[in-house]
Computed example of a mutant assay.
Amino acid sequence: MPDENDNPFQNFNQQVIDEFRANRGRVGGYFEGARLLLLTTTGARTGTRHTTPVGYLPDGGERVLVIASAGGSPRHPDWYRNLLADPHVTVESGVFTYEAQAVVLAGEERDRAWARAVEADPGWAAYQKKTERVIPVVALYNTTQGGPGNINASSMGEAIKVVHDAFRRELALIREEMSKADSGGGTLGAQLRVNCLTFCQGLHNHHTGEDQALFPFVADRHPQTAPAIARLREEHEHIAALVEELRRTLATEGGEAGDPATVRTEVERLTLALEAHLDYEERELIPVIDGAA
């Protein structure tokens, strides 16, 4: 992925940035289906803010990982040199925009993250072969207080839809990655396990927020939604049970990868339940919320 600030790919990067923002994280062409974010850093020499599209790896609920590959260039990308000078960055996920602290991984932690990346996509290893520098891996920690960041939506109903669509996209990526693993006849990869667990944690956090904040807010202002909210709460409990079962199948007691076929079965069960749940919530709540507004 081109990731320099002032290189021949600048116009290409800007096209990706514009498409990413217009479609809340979706891009087409070569990067269709890829996990991308927009990373804004402060220029080490100029102090000017620069935004760059970069690929990322899920890494649990507190951080994501980005890799300063520069396509195997002998030079570190500008965004990496910028964050070395100022680790305070801004991240756009397509749904949320948040402030983050960049931390360059070192030693065994870096090596484990790199191994996961290479296992998930051998292209990273190809980049490393092209350069003598050790390609850095950087963790981006969300530092926004009180939530995941500013949501890129103009209404509460739209916010529900864009968050739901983000879950749909991530689940589709996970299912595609599992299909590739199945076709290769391999075991469940370490990064794929992390992707699943990160998704599970994000879904748990989202449903907890709805139960504690969104649903009481809507029920108070729109009493006619009580039956729908009661059903949605019950579905949250059912989905939580499916999520817990998926977590159990992702690892044995010894921490090794679970059986891929069993994991796939649990992912499909969760997919069916979640898609029906999201569709019902959008159908029942969004018209009421945005119509009243």
Rank of each mutant, 00 (worst) to 15 (best):
H207L: 15
H236N: 10
I239D: 00
L242V: 05
C196I: 06
Q224E: 04
A257V: 03
E177V: 13
P216R: 11
R231C: 09
L188D: 02
D182M: 12
T225N: 06
D220H: 15
T187W: 06
G209H: 10
H206R: 05
Q212H: 05
N195G: 01
E244T: 14
A213Y: 05
D259A: 02
C200A: 02
A226G: 08
H204D: 03
T249V: 11
E256P: 15
E210N: 13
V194P: 04
D211V: 04
A172Q: 14
R248D: 02
F199Y: 15
H206P: 03
L173F: 07
H206K: 03
E253L: 06
T208Q: 14
H204T: 02
T225D: 06
R221D: 03
M178H: 06
L197Y: 06
P227G: 10
R175K: 12
G209N: 07
S183P: 07
L188G: 02
H236M: 11
E170W: 12
E244H: 14
Q201E: 08
A257H: 06
G184E: 06
R221W: 06
Q191N: 05
L188V: 03
H204W: 05
F199L: 14
L173R: 11
A240L: 12
G184T: 04
L192Q: 05
H207N: 12
V218Y: 01
K180N: 12
A257N: 08
G202R: 02
A190K: 15
E245M: 11
G184W: 07
G202H: 04
A230T: 07
E170K: 10
E210S: 11
V243I: 01
I174E: 06
R233C: 05
A251N: 14
L250P: 01
L188W: 04
N205H: 01
A228W: 14
T225L: 10
H222T: 04
P216Y: 08
R175Y: 11
N205L: 00
E177P: 08
P227M: 12
F217Y: 07
L242S: 03
S179K: 13
V218M: 01
P223Y: 00
D182H: 09
I229Q: 01
E245I: 10
Q201K: 09
H238K: 14
H238A: 11
C196P: 02
E245T: 14
A257I: 03
A241H: 10
A190P: 05
C200W: 01
H206M: 08
E237T: 15
G202Q: 00
G202M: 00
P216T: 10
T187K: 07
M178P: 02
L171P: 00
S183K: 09
A213F: 07
A226I: 11
K180D: 13
E244V: 09
A213C: 03
R175I: 08
L188N: 01
L203S: 00
E170V: 08
D211Y: 05
G186I: 06
H222K: 13
V243D: 00
N195R: 00
H204A: 02
H222D: 05
G258T: 06
L242M: 07
E237V: 15
S179C: 11
T252K: 11
G255K: 12
E237L: 15
N195V: 00
E170T: 10
R231N: 14
H207Y: 14
E244K: 12
H238R: 15
